[in-house]
């Protein structure tokens, strides 16, 4: 086939190029630019090379933040995914219960993140908070401002409360797409409840589950607003996740160079993990 060549056609992709340039490429390049320079304000910059990167990768503060992030993501995935599946399995399939459940499940997702943070910040306070006050009244020593473990528990419970319904809704969507004939066939084949879950429901939920895991992992790895509102990264540095650390550095200390270097490393980590997830997902789908 003869192809018509017309170089003017390139102009057709120009709008997209301009949009992407202003929304992504130029800001990113600005960050790259900062990350290799040092500044003392007044728009004066000095070449710093890879100094910030070396410093960052050698700093224990950075690795500690990454560690906290990974532990946090691991814990909330381990709670939210099984819990979400369990709730989705027990949600009604027909009748008036369906809209009720769906609305209840969607509610936490509709609340802005800083509001969620504020809700739990107040909820957990030991002086006026419903949960904080009564926990202490029951003799359980709970204080998220002073005790790192309590702070972690609060942040994790908050995330589970906020995001489990996303997993529920995705799983539910997978479940309702299973035709009745499958359950009937399973009955005829004498399958146990567990076998129905393992061989019918789980395979049908597999795709949405992978998406749920990916979304929840990325989101929790980038978590900022809620713990910032509740604990502000404390007590000490115990809930200082990467993003909180980054903002502290860039805005609190105005260390643009190190902050830019950290942004880039953070970005690359997320890019790498997304790629790993994506590859695993697509291989899992087509491979076997």
């Amino acid at each position: 086939m003869e192809k018509t060549l017309n170089n003017k056609a390139w102009f057709l992709v120009l709008p997209v190029l301009v949009l992407v340039a202003f929304s992504a490429v130029i800001p990113l390049m600005t960050v790259v630019n900062y990350s290799v320079q040092d500044t003392f304000g007044n728009n004066q910059f000095f070449w710093a090379g890879t100094e910030w990167f070396q410093e960052l990768l050698a700093s224990s503060r950075f690795w500690a933040a990454i560690g906290r992030n990974l532990v946090f993501s691991g814990i909330i995935l381990a709670i939210e995914v099984p819990l979400g599946i369990l709730i989705a399995l027990n949600m009604p399939r027909k009748g008036w219960g369906v809209p009720v459940c769906l609305v209840l499940m969607a509610l936490p997702l509709l609340i802005p993140w800083n509001v969620v943070g504020t809700i739990w910040q107040v909820f957990g306070r030991t002086d006026i908070g419903l949960m904080g006050y009564y926990l202490n009244a029951l003799g359980i020593n709970y204080n998220y401002v002073q005790n790192p473990i309590d702070a972690w528990v609060t942040v994790i419970v908050m995330d589970v409360w906020h995001w489990t319904s996303l997993v529920v809704l995705l799983c539910y969507a997978g479940l309702v797409s299973i035709p009745d004939a499958f359950y009937q066939a399973a009955k005829i084949d004498g399958a146990s409840r567990w076998a129905v879950f393992r061989y019918i429901q789980l395979p049908k939920m597999q795709r949405v589950l992978l998406i749920a895991v990916l979304l929840r992992f990325m989101d929790s790895f980038m978590i900022y607003t809620e713990p910032f509102v509740v604990t502000g990264g404390g007590p000490g540095n115990s809930t200082t996740f990467l993003s909180i650390d980054l903002v502290k550095m860039a805005l609190g200390q105005f260390d643009l160079g190190p902050a830019a270097a950290m942004s880039l490393v953070y970005f690359l980590i997320i890019l790498l993990l997304s790629w790993v997830f994506y590859t695993v997902m697509t291989n899992y789908d087509s491979g076997r």
Binding site: P179, Q184, A195, Y199, P203
Partner: peptide
């Protein structure tokens, strides 16, 4: 019973599909 739309257990092999009702 054979249904209008084929019901198979996707993740199993053909062999395991047939073995399923017996193993149950």
């Amino acid at each position: 019973q054979v249904f209008q739309f084929p019901v198979i257990y996707d993740t199993m092999t053909v062999y395991d599909n047939l073995a399923f009702p017996l193993r149950n």
